[in-house]
Write a protein that binds this DNA or RNA. Structure first.
Lengths: 114, 114
DNA sequence: GTGATTGTTACCCATTCGACTAAGTATATA
DNA sequence: TATATACTTAGTCGAATGGGTAACAATCAC
């Protein structure tokens, strides 16, 4: 049963890094090996591997080693869980806005411009 | 012009903490003061204030002090930016899945169960 | 079987994070 | 005016993060 609370921590934490987001993005177009994924980054392999570990711990990717090559692929379920959480918040906020609008046309609505 | 890249860092980072997510959630049902927001947490005020600072730096909330009370409200634009990023990834992945399915009915599809 | 590839393990290091306390400021309220 | 309320500032501390090197497997390709 959904113990999202803990997982959302690690999922959002994982997404908070540009290297890791780039890896996710890369993997959306298909599985890839570690070295292939690491190629765009000027980073030592062990450092890069830590990012892979964070993504895997967050449940955003899975990986399997065949021969000497470890192949990674995306596992979009947790990504969806994060999206769902955000969606719920914006929906609740929009609901409140709608209710507010039904009471008042303009509340001197200096708007929420940013 | 959209330099999301930097902001997504701080936004996801901000969402990676349960206290901060709870604050967001609280604020979706309307503005609130610092002490009101802090009430559910067993945490010293200065500690809690740092969370507010993180949320504000990420552009997820805004706050204004009137008298001795600082009132916070949600600013859902950045939340939407995060959602958009995730959406883009899942869409790309689903697109690939659809294209794959058009080539093969079943690729011994031991399914992506988790 | 030598040598290049592809990870992996084991550490180190600086910085950031998240929590704390102690003390200060600024406004209400009695 | 005195006191309580609502933050605010400043500084400490341990743990986690994000990077690095060095050395070690374990394949594969010749």
């Amino acid at each position: 049963m959904g113990n999202n609370h803990e997982n959302l921590n690690t999922v959002f934490q994982a997404l908070a890094d540009p290297t890791r987001r780039a890896v996710i993005q890369h993997l959306t177009s298909g599985p890839a090996s570690i070295t292939e994924l690491a190629k765009p980054f000027e980073m030592a392999l062990p450092s890069f591997m830590k990012h892979i570990g964070v993504l895997e711990d967050a449940g955003l990717i899975r990986s399997k080693k065949i021969g000497r090559v470890r192949t990674c692929e995306i596992k979009p379920k947790q990504l969806t869980a994060a999206e769902t959480w955000i969606n719920k918040q914006t929906a609740q906020w929009e609901g409140r806005m709608a209710r507010m609008a039904s009471f008042v046309e303009a509340l001197g609505a200096e708007g929420q411009d940013d």
